[in-house]
Simulated assay, not measured.
Amino acid sequence: MIKENLEYVEKNIRKACEKAGRKREDVTLIAVSKTKPVSDIREAMACGITVFGENKVQEIRDKTAEITEPLSWHMIGHLQANKVKYLPGVACMIHSVDNRKLADEIEKQAAKHDLVMDVLVEVNMAHEDTKFGLSPDEAIDFVKEISTLPHLNIRGFMTIAPYTEDPESNRVYFKGLRELKDQVNSLSIPGVHMDTLSMGMTGDYEVAIEEGATFVRVGTGIFGERDYSKKA
């Protein structure tokens, strides 16, 4: 099933890139493996997938302890500052930076490991009460504020668009995030040049690609529905 699902997702990614006049290599598929067992991840690896996304620090720690092959692991879920210490050297990017306390802790832990952590600033484009992230109006000032932290490399923005039956209804949010990125780049903030937009999930990744996504986060579309009653 995973192999067939990946072939279907890949076909759709290529189609969306073609429609938008973009190169396929400009879009990275993140296979969101949260709650899924290592056996599923290995099945995806056998199909050539090397980039995986996890929502919980404990899961990313457990899975990277068992899977020692060189993969790119992305922390895409809400992150508490007290869990950051487990991520340097494990996650290659943190997608969900949305407050100064968290940014300061990433700075502190990255400095301890003598590395620079790639991060994305999470923006709640649809102003949903149930989601984390800064409002679009706060995002640029926040980027300026944390741009002085030497062990953070602010690569771009991430958003989680509303769940919808109509992917087209999320186009406005993806377009808005791209425009926000372009606005930041036009300001020439020292040390900041954004090249990354993490947006689009199983239900709307094609529209996200058409609007400039460089990372699409697909879980259910690859691994099937999740059973949250079971531990991974």
Rank of each mutant, 00 (worst) to 15 (best):
T196S: 02
A81F: 04
E7N: 14
A111C: 10
A126E: 08
V143K: 03
V9S: 05
S96K: 01
A65N: 15
L134E: 01
K15H: 12
H193I: 09
S96F: 05
V32W: 00
L149H: 04
Y8S: 15
S33P: 09
G191S: 06
Y173R: 10
A31Q: 01
I160R: 03
R226W: 03
G156L: 04
K15C: 13
A213N: 01
V27G: 00
T50P: 02
P190R: 08
I2R: 05
A232L: 08
S39E: 15
G221D: 02
S169A: 15
L177H: 10
I94C: 04
L102F: 08
V27W: 01
R171E: 11
D195L: 09
V192H: 11
I13L: 12
S33E: 09
P190I: 02
T196H: 04
K131N: 03
A208S: 12
D118H: 05
E4C: 00
M158L: 09
Y8I: 14
M194F: 05
K144R: 15
G191Y: 01
G200L: 03
Y228R: 09
L134W: 00
A208W: 09
T68M: 07
M1P: 13
I154K: 03
V51G: 06
M125T: 10
V123S: 03
L29F: 00
W73I: 07
E105R: 14
R171C: 06
E59L: 14
R61L: 11
A232Y: 15
H151W: 05
Q80G: 00
N82F: 00
D137L: 13
I30S: 02
K63T: 12
I41G: 02
Y173V: 06
V143Q: 01
L187K: 07
E165T: 15
E59A: 13
